[in-house]
Amino acid sequence: MKIIVCVKAVRQELVFINKVQQSTYVINPYDLLALQNAINIKNTEACTIDCISMGPDSIREVLVKCLALGSDNAYWLNDKAFAGADTIVTTYVLSKGISKIGEYDLIICGEQTVDGETGQVGIGLAERLNIPCITNVEEIIDFTDKYIIVCVKYEDHEEVLKIQLPALVVFKNFKLISNTVSLLHLKKAQRKEIVRWSSNDLCFEKNWCGLAQAKTRVVNVTPELIVKEGRLISGNAKKKAVVISQLIQGRFDADNYG
């Protein structure tokens, strides 16, 4: 069985605000969770994992990291003409890449990327490949060569769905901390070939992709800083306990505090 994981490399400062991580690019945290789920399946079922990513020259290390983490193959859709792709174009290029890979059973995507935040690629890609798609996936419960059973979570309820393969599932959560891989795994990954395809290899016109065909553009992504109002409670432990209990019971009178 074959699982294809769609991975995007994103700039590290969008993920790690304090720059504790060392690389310029890291795996988009949503895709990291998707990959982790694929690896979990591989730990129990006989299958191969192919990672596929569209991105510029500088993202090679991210694909090496995918290989080191447990992906068997890595495909890199790399062409200057792909620059500036929106979701419509991205899904087009990815669908071409996936078709060129050949047979597959399951495609796994993360819900969105931290630099685009559009959340459209998974569904768009399924549409282009003409396969069923389930979004909001929390967990893959069962995996056979004919179908998978997944748990889908919504705000107020959850569903357990059985879906025929081939299919595409979109994981809703993200994973921030990438497991460090051993130096040996890293070395083996570095030795593996990463398959690099340009628009020529994918047999389509350059003007069919990139900025030229993009219908939308993400101009900027800024994290929203949510500052919660805080109150410093002073006094001895007894006084603090009284204030906290008043706060919990909604009886706190700020005007008379102090």
Partner: peptide
């Protein structure tokens, strides 16, 4: 080299985490 860079970064991340 890119390999050396990756070894270095992975080592730093590993140490800080562990």
């Amino acid at each position: 080299s890119q390999e050396q860079n990756m070894f270095k970064r992975e080592t730093i991340d590993f140490i800080r985490n562990n």
